[in-house]
Design a binder for these strands. Sequence first.
DNA 1: TTTTAATTTGTAATCGTTACAAATTTATAA
DNA 2: TTATAAATTTGTAACGATTACAAATTAAAA
Lengths: 133, 133
Amino acid sequence: MTAYEHLLKYDIKPSSQRIVIMDYLLNNRTHPTSNEIYNALKDDNPTLSKTTVYNTLKLFEEKGAVLNLSIDEKNAHFDGDTSDHAHLICTQCGKIVDMEITMAPKVCNDMGCEIHQTHIYMKGICGECKKVN
Amino acid sequence: MTAYEHLLKYDIKPSSQRIVIMDYLLNNRTHPTSNEIYNALKDDNPTLSKTTVYNTLKLFEEKGAVLNLSIDEKNAHFDGDTSDHAHLICTQCGKIVDMEITMAPKVCNDMGCEIHQTHIYMKGICGECKKVN
DNA sequence: TTTTAATTTGTAATCGTTACAAATTTATAA
DNA sequence: TTATAAATTTGTAACGATTACAAATTAAAA
Protein backbone atom coordinates (compact mmCIF):
# COMPACT_ATOMS: atom_id res chain seq x y z
CA MET A 1 0.00 0.00 0.00
CA THR A 2 1.31 3.44 -0.84
CA ALA A 3 1.65 6.17 1.77
CA TYR A 4 -1.08 8.06 -0.07
CA GLU A 5 -3.51 5.16 0.22
CA HIS A 6 -2.51 4.58 3.83
CA LEU A 7 -3.40 8.17 4.71
CA LEU A 8 -6.78 7.94 3.00
CA LYS A 9 -7.49 4.71 4.82
CA TYR A 10 -7.08 6.50 8.14
CA ASP A 11 -9.04 9.54 7.02
CA ILE A 12 -6.08 11.87 6.81
CA LYS A 13 -5.93 14.45 4.06
CA PRO A 14 -2.78 13.63 2.11
CA SER A 15 -0.69 16.78 1.94
CA SER A 16 2.77 16.46 0.43
CA GLN A 17 4.43 16.65 3.86
CA ARG A 18 2.16 13.97 5.28
CA ILE A 19 2.83 11.69 2.34
CA VAL A 20 6.58 12.07 2.67
CA ILE A 21 6.51 11.38 6.41
CA MET A 22 4.19 8.40 6.12
CA ASP A 23 6.25 7.05 3.24
CA TYR A 24 9.34 7.19 5.40
CA LEU A 25 7.60 5.32 8.21
CA LEU A 26 6.28 2.62 5.91
CA ASN A 27 9.66 2.02 4.27
CA ASN A 28 11.92 2.32 7.30
CA ARG A 29 11.19 -0.21 9.96
CA THR A 30 13.64 1.33 12.41
CA HIS A 31 10.99 2.89 14.70
CA PRO A 32 12.44 6.36 14.27
CA THR A 33 11.96 9.38 16.49
CA SER A 34 10.54 12.68 15.24
CA ASN A 35 14.03 14.05 15.00
CA GLU A 36 15.34 11.10 13.05
CA ILE A 37 12.52 11.45 10.57
CA TYR A 38 13.17 15.16 10.24
CA ASN A 39 16.89 14.66 9.66
CA ALA A 40 16.29 11.93 7.11
CA LEU A 41 13.84 14.05 5.12
CA LYS A 42 15.13 17.60 5.35
CA ASP A 43 17.67 17.36 2.51
CA ASP A 44 15.08 16.31 -0.03
CA ASN A 45 12.46 18.60 1.55
CA PRO A 46 14.30 21.81 2.38
CA THR A 47 11.23 23.72 3.53
CA LEU A 48 10.10 20.98 5.90
CA SER A 49 9.85 22.17 9.48
CA LYS A 50 10.60 20.17 12.57
CA THR A 51 7.31 21.34 14.05
CA THR A 52 5.47 19.90 11.09
CA VAL A 53 7.02 16.51 11.74
CA TYR A 54 5.92 16.63 15.37
CA ASN A 55 2.42 17.85 14.49
CA THR A 56 2.03 15.32 11.74
CA LEU A 57 3.09 12.39 13.89
CA LYS A 58 0.67 13.48 16.58
CA LEU A 59 -2.10 13.60 14.01
CA PHE A 60 -1.14 10.16 12.68
CA GLU A 61 -1.21 8.78 16.20
CA GLU A 62 -4.62 10.27 16.97
CA LYS A 63 -6.02 8.83 13.76
CA GLY A 64 -4.51 5.43 14.57
CA ALA A 65 -2.29 5.46 11.50
CA VAL A 66 0.92 4.96 13.50
CA LEU A 67 1.87 3.69 16.93
CA ASN A 68 3.73 5.83 19.41
CA LEU A 69 6.08 3.46 21.20
CA SER A 70 6.92 4.79 24.62
CA ILE A 71 9.48 2.03 24.99
CA ASP A 72 12.31 4.54 25.39
CA GLU A 73 12.11 7.02 28.24
CA LYS A 74 14.07 9.61 26.30
CA ASN A 75 12.25 9.89 22.99
CA ALA A 76 9.00 8.87 21.41
CA HIS A 77 9.53 6.28 18.67
CA PHE A 78 7.00 5.73 15.91
CA ASP A 79 5.91 2.61 14.08
CA GLY A 80 4.02 2.65 10.80
CA ASP A 81 3.11 -1.01 11.31
CA THR A 82 0.00 -1.00 13.48
CA SER A 83 -0.51 -4.75 13.41
CA ASP A 84 -0.07 -6.84 16.58
CA HIS A 85 3.57 -7.32 17.37
CA ALA A 86 5.97 -6.74 20.23
CA HIS A 87 9.17 -4.74 20.47
CA LEU A 88 12.55 -5.27 22.01
CA ILE A 89 14.79 -2.34 22.81
CA CYS A 90 18.43 -3.29 23.06
CA THR A 91 19.99 -1.87 26.18
CA GLN A 92 23.38 -1.95 24.45
CA CYS A 93 22.86 -0.36 21.03
CA GLY A 94 19.44 1.19 21.59
CA LYS A 95 17.98 -0.36 18.47
CA ILE A 96 14.31 -1.34 18.55
CA VAL A 97 13.47 -4.57 16.78
CA ASP A 98 10.12 -6.17 16.00
CA MET A 99 9.15 -9.42 17.66
CA GLU A 100 6.32 -11.69 16.74
CA ILE A 101 3.72 -12.54 19.38
CA THR A 102 2.59 -16.13 19.10
CA MET A 103 0.11 -16.01 21.94
CA ALA A 104 -1.92 -13.00 22.94
CA PRO A 105 -1.78 -12.22 26.64
CA LYS A 106 -5.02 -12.58 28.53
CA VAL A 107 -5.54 -9.73 30.89
CA CYS A 108 -7.96 -9.83 33.75
CA ASN A 109 -10.63 -7.29 33.08
CA ASP A 110 -13.17 -7.66 35.86
CA MET A 111 -12.88 -3.98 36.70
CA GLY A 112 -14.83 -3.07 33.61
CA CYS A 113 -12.03 -1.36 31.80
CA GLU A 114 -12.23 -0.65 28.11
CA ILE A 115 -8.99 -1.56 26.38
CA HIS A 116 -8.12 0.31 23.21
CA GLN A 117 -4.49 -0.60 22.65
CA THR A 118 -2.16 -3.25 24.01
CA HIS A 119 1.59 -2.72 23.93
CA ILE A 120 4.16 -5.35 24.72
CA TYR A 121 7.76 -4.40 24.91
CA MET A 122 10.90 -5.97 26.19
CA LYS A 123 14.23 -4.76 27.38
CA GLY A 124 17.29 -6.85 26.67
CA ILE A 125 20.10 -7.46 24.20
CA CYS A 126 19.38 -7.75 20.48
CA GLY A 127 20.74 -10.55 18.31
CA GLU A 128 23.46 -8.44 16.72
CA CYS A 129 24.86 -7.20 20.00
CA LYS A 130 24.83 -10.75 21.36
CA LYS A 131 26.90 -11.95 18.40
CA VAL A 132 29.55 -9.28 18.94
CA ASN A 133 30.10 -10.08 22.60
CA MET B 1 8.23 -6.59 53.90
CA THR B 2 9.45 -3.25 55.16
CA ALA B 3 11.09 -0.70 52.91
CA TYR B 4 14.29 -1.30 54.84
CA GLU B 5 14.25 -5.01 54.12
CA HIS B 6 13.28 -4.39 50.53
CA LEU B 7 16.34 -2.22 50.03
CA LEU B 8 18.67 -4.78 51.57
CA LYS B 9 17.17 -7.46 49.35
CA TYR B 10 18.19 -5.47 46.29
CA ASP B 11 21.61 -4.63 47.66
CA ILE B 12 20.89 -0.95 48.26
CA LYS B 13 22.34 0.76 51.28
CA PRO B 14 19.35 2.00 53.26
CA SER B 15 19.81 5.70 53.85
CA SER B 16 16.93 7.57 55.42
CA GLN B 17 15.97 9.18 52.12
CA ARG B 18 15.99 5.84 50.33
CA ILE B 19 13.85 4.27 53.01
CA VAL B 20 11.29 7.03 52.85
CA ILE B 21 11.07 6.90 49.08
CA MET B 22 10.85 3.12 48.93
CA ASP B 23 8.28 3.13 51.70
CA TYR B 24 6.14 5.50 49.70
CA LEU B 25 6.37 3.29 46.63
CA LEU B 26 5.48 0.16 48.55
CA ASN B 27 2.47 1.74 50.23
CA ASN B 28 1.10 3.78 47.36
CA ARG B 29 0.11 1.69 44.39
CA THR B 30 -0.61 4.73 42.25
CA HIS B 31 2.51 4.43 40.06
CA PRO B 32 3.68 7.92 40.93
CA THR B 33 6.12 10.11 39.06
CA SER B 34 9.30 11.49 40.62
CA ASN B 35 7.57 14.79 41.14
CA GLU B 36 4.54 13.21 42.79
CA ILE B 37 6.79 11.35 45.19
CA TYR B 38 8.72 14.51 45.96
CA ASN B 39 5.56 16.50 46.61
CA ALA B 40 4.10 13.79 48.81
CA LEU B 41 7.22 13.55 50.94
CA LYS B 42 8.60 17.06 51.17
CA ASP B 43 6.40 18.22 54.04
CA ASP B 44 7.55 15.46 56.36
CA ASN B 45 11.07 15.64 54.95
CA PRO B 46 11.84 19.32 54.57
CA THR B 47 15.45 18.85 53.51
CA LEU B 48 14.61 16.35 50.80
CA SER B 49 15.73 17.46 47.39
CA LYS B 50 14.00 16.81 44.10
CA THR B 51 17.33 15.71 42.65
CA THR B 52 17.64 13.08 45.34
CA VAL B 53 14.28 11.64 44.36
CA TYR B 54 15.38 11.42 40.75
CA ASN B 55 18.76 9.94 41.62
CA THR B 56 17.27 7.47 44.06
CA LEU B 57 14.66 6.22 41.63
CA LYS B 58 17.32 5.75 38.99
CA LEU B 59 19.36 3.73 41.46
CA PHE B 60 16.32 1.65 42.42
CA GLU B 61 15.63 0.98 38.77
CA GLU B 62 19.22 -0.07 38.05
CA LYS B 63 19.18 -2.43 41.00
CA GLY B 64 15.86 -3.88 39.87
CA ALA B 65 14.05 -2.73 42.99
CA VAL B 66 11.41 -0.80 41.08
CA LEU B 67 10.01 -0.73 37.57
CA ASN B 68 10.13 2.36 35.43
CA LEU B 69 6.88 2.34 33.48
CA SER B 70 7.28 4.26 30.27
CA ILE B 71 3.56 3.95 29.69
CA ASP B 72 3.10 7.72 29.69
CA GLU B 73 5.01 9.77 27.12
CA LYS B 74 5.14 12.77 29.43
CA ASN B 75 6.58 11.41 32.68
CA ALA B 76 8.26 8.31 34.00
CA HIS B 77 6.02 6.43 36.45
CA PHE B 78 7.43 4.06 39.02
CA ASP B 79 6.11 0.81 40.43
CA GLY B 80 7.43 -0.78 43.60
CA ASP B 81 5.74 -4.05 42.67
CA THR B 82 8.18 -5.84 40.39
CA SER B 83 6.10 -8.96 39.99
CA ASP B 84 4.54 -9.89 36.63
CA HIS B 85 1.52 -7.76 35.93
CA ALA B 86 0.24 -5.43 33.27
CA HIS B 87 -0.86 -1.80 33.38
CA LEU B 88 -3.68 0.20 31.95
CA ILE B 89 -3.39 3.94 31.57
CA CYS B 90 -6.76 5.66 31.38
CA THR B 91 -6.85 8.09 28.51
CA GLN B 92 -9.53 10.08 30.34
CA CYS B 93 -8.25 10.53 33.89
CA GLY B 94 -4.62 9.52 33.37
CA LYS B 95 -4.70 7.03 36.22
CA ILE B 96 -2.57 3.91 35.88
CA VAL B 97 -4.15 0.73 37.24
CA ASP B 98 -2.72 -2.75 37.70
CA MET B 99 -4.04 -5.63 35.66
CA GLU B 100 -3.45 -9.28 36.19
CA ILE B 101 -1.95 -11.31 33.38
CA THR B 102 -3.47 -14.75 33.18
CA MET B 103 -1.42 -15.97 30.27
CA ALA B 104 2.14 -14.98 29.54
CA PRO B 105 2.71 -13.88 25.96
CA LYS B 106 5.01 -16.07 23.92
CA VAL B 107 7.37 -13.98 21.89
CA CYS B 108 9.25 -15.35 18.93
CA ASN B 109 12.91 -15.29 19.78
CA ASP B 110 14.68 -16.91 16.84
CA MET B 111 16.91 -13.87 16.44
CA GLY B 112 18.85 -14.84 19.53
CA CYS B 113 17.77 -11.92 21.63
CA GLU B 114 18.25 -11.97 25.36
CA ILE B 115 15.13 -10.72 27.11
CA HIS B 116 15.59 -9.11 30.50
CA GLN B 117 12.24 -7.45 31.12
CA THR B 118 8.80 -7.74 29.57
CA HIS B 119 6.33 -4.89 29.87
CA ILE B 120 2.70 -5.06 28.90
CA TYR B 121 0.62 -1.98 28.97
CA MET B 122 -2.72 -0.93 27.66
CA LYS B 123 -4.39 2.30 26.74
CA GLY B 124 -8.09 2.68 27.35
CA ILE B 125 -10.71 3.78 29.83
CA CYS B 126 -10.52 2.71 33.46
CA GLY B 127 -13.48 1.28 35.36
CA GLU B 128 -14.22 4.44 37.29
CA CYS B 129 -14.28 6.67 34.22
CA LYS B 130 -16.55 4.16 32.47
CA LYS B 131 -19.02 4.29 35.36
CA VAL B 132 -19.24 8.07 35.22
CA ASN B 133 -20.01 8.27 31.50
C1' DT C 1 40.40 11.83 65.66
C1' DT C 2 41.61 12.39 60.82
C1' DT C 3 40.88 10.98 56.33
C1' DT C 4 38.30 9.07 52.74
C1' DA C 5 34.26 7.63 50.47
C1' DA C 6 29.39 7.88 49.78
C1' DT C 7 25.29 10.44 49.70
C1' DT C 8 22.55 14.47 49.37
C1' DT C 9 21.52 18.99 47.88
C1' DG C 10 20.61 23.30 44.93
C1' DT C 11 21.47 25.51 40.77
C1' DA C 12 22.08 25.68 36.15
C1' DA C 13 21.92 23.48 31.82
C1' DT C 14 19.99 20.21 28.38
C1' DC C 15 16.84 18.76 25.17
C1' DG C 16 12.50 16.79 23.45
C1' DT C 17 8.25 18.67 22.82
C1' DT C 18 4.59 22.13 22.45
C1' DA C 19 2.28 26.92 22.20
C1' DC C 20 1.65 30.44 19.41
C1' DA C 21 1.10 33.52 15.70
C1' DA C 22 2.47 34.60 11.09
C1' DA C 23 2.86 32.81 6.46
C1' DT C 24 1.50 29.79 3.03
C1' DT C 25 -1.39 26.65 0.71
C1' DT C 26 -5.80 24.64 -0.33
C1' DA C 27 -10.71 24.65 -0.62
C1' DT C 28 -15.09 27.11 -1.17
C1' DA C 29 -18.26 30.60 -2.74
C1' DA C 30 -19.55 34.26 -5.50
C1' DT D 1 -11.84 33.67 -12.42
C1' DT D 2 -11.60 36.16 -8.16
C1' DA D 3 -12.51 36.79 -3.35
C1' DT D 4 -12.94 34.70 1.04
C1' DA D 5 -12.51 31.29 4.38
C1' DA D 6 -10.40 27.22 6.19
C1' DA D 7 -6.62 24.17 6.69
C1' DT D 8 -1.85 23.41 6.86
C1' DT D 9 2.85 24.60 7.46
C1' DT D 10 6.52 27.16 9.40
C1' DG D 11 9.87 29.44 12.75
C1' DT D 12 10.51 31.17 17.20
C1' DA D 13 9.96 31.16 21.82
C1' DA D 14 8.56 28.85 25.86
C1' DC D 15 7.85 24.82 28.76
C1' DG D 16 9.01 21.22 31.72
C1' DA D 17 11.00 16.76 32.87
C1' DT D 18 15.38 15.22 33.60
C1' DT D 19 20.37 15.47 34.26
C1' DA D 20 25.18 17.51 35.01
C1' DC D 21 27.83 19.44 38.16
C1' DA D 22 30.07 20.94 42.17
C1' DA D 23 29.51 22.12 46.91
C1' DA D 24 27.82 20.51 51.29
C1' DT D 25 26.73 16.99 54.31
C1' DT D 26 26.84 12.48 56.22
C1' DA D 27 28.71 7.93 56.98
C1' DA D 28 32.60 4.76 57.03
C1' DA D 29 37.44 3.56 57.59
C1' DA D 30 41.97 4.17 59.35
